[in-house]
């Protein structure tokens, strides 16, 4: 019991240390505005991709509709923070966006999650497209022009905090009994069902949690970039998130982190190459896929507990 507390405290210490390091770098002037923007965008991508990894990597349901749920979070939060431009508004916006997106996921998830593989991918793509078209035609969302002058409330400490919170929720969910039930659905639906696992329920829960996470990512995006339009949430955005998941390793949250950081830095460095940028970016993706088809980390996860037990084992041998 005490050991578990120790491991959790170590994780907490890592999170706080990360915060302090970034603060110091910024204070010392090593990190400028440009680097900070990169950092925030990486953080938002981590949030979006961990949610998608839960759906694709752990429950095994191939979704191409992540941008749709991201759009819901972005618009709901943008509307609320425009009305209440302070921290309370941001909090309300995040919660309302996540809940709204979760409800939509629940409603579309129950019928569509009966489908498998490619069929589900196309159905979820359709859902995202419907959401985008609705946003394009509503008065409250200002149609194709979108929303602008959204208050800048997603500062990097806010993003950092939310990266930590969503990661803790998703990782703890995956490593719980519920998470095991979700993974059994991915492994073999028929076997899972004959072991008493209600597969429809777990598929829908994973989908809803993933969609709520996407909404949080979307909300932060809206309040950082300050303008959003329906075209921001098209199929390409879903694919960008998917790339992070696949590149990091389907079924590895650590991999998602690594891939988001690597791609974010790559994007930043390639800014200097002008028009060649997208070519080099795509080339990097192809090379990684050729040499590491299971993603950068496969299904490997960083575990403090394992690190410690290995250390004590080697000590015992010596």
């Amino acid at each position: 019991m005490k050991k578990n507390l120790k491991y959790n405290l170590i994780w907490l210490a890592i999170m706080i240390a990360g915060y302090i390091i970034i603060n110091v770098l910024e204070f010392a002037g090593i990190m400028g505005q440009f680097a900070e923007t990169t950092l925030v965008l990486i953080g938002i991508n981590i949030i979006l991709a961990t949610g998608l990894n839960l759906i694709i990597g752990f429950s095994g349901q191939f979704s191409l509709g992540h941008a749709g749920f991201m759009a819901i979070g972005a618009y709901v939060c943008a509307l609320i923070t425009t009305a209440i431009p302070n921290a309370l508004g941001m909090l309300l916006g995040l919660i309302a966006g996540a809940v709204f997106s979760g409800v939509v996921a629940l409603v579309v998830g129950i019928p569509t999650l009966r489908l498998n593989g490619d069929y589900l991918a196309i159905a979820t793509m359709g859902v995202a497209e419907i959401i985008r078209i609705i946003l394009n035609n509503l008065k409250i969302t200002n149609g194709p022009a979108g929303l602008y002058n959204i208050p800048m409330l997603a500062t990097w400490p806010v993003v950092y905090l939310l990266v930590c919170i969503t990661t803790i929720i998703i990782v703890n969910f995956i490593h719980s009994r519920d998470g095991r039930a979700v993974m059994s659905v991915r492994e073999d639906e028929i076997a899972a069902e004959s072991m008493g696992v209600n597969i429809t329920k777990w598929k829908v829960i994973a989908f809803v949690v993933g969609a709520a996470t996407a909404a949080i990512g979307g909300a932060l995006h809206a309040n950082y970039i300050q303008t959003i339009a329906p075209t921001d949430f098209g199929i390409m955005e879903s694919i960008n998130i998917l790339i992070i998941v696949v590149l990091g390793g389907i079924g590895s949250i650590t991999g998602t982190f690594v891939a988001a950081v690597v791609l974010g830095l790559l994007d930043m460095i390639l800014q200097n190459f002008g028009t060649l940028r997208m070519v080099l970016y795509s080339l990097a993706l192809i090379l990684i896929m050729v040499f590491k088809p299971s993603g950068l980390l496969g299904t490997w996860e960083l575990s403090i507990r394992r690190l410690f037990t290995r250390k004590s084992k080697t000590k015992g041998d010596a």
């Binding site: 009994r177 519920d178 095991r180 039930a181 993974m183 059994s184 492994e187 073999d188 028929i190 076997a191 899972a192 072991m195 008493g196 696992v197 299904t299």
Partner: peptide, 19 residues
């Protein structure tokens, strides 16, 4: 029909989840 990519222990634990 085992849960092939999960450990032996996890295979058994999943079956116990419902209870």
């Amino acid at each position: 029909r085992l849960f092939k990519d999960l450990s032996v222990l996890d295979n058994v634990l999943i079956a116990m989840t419902a209870k």
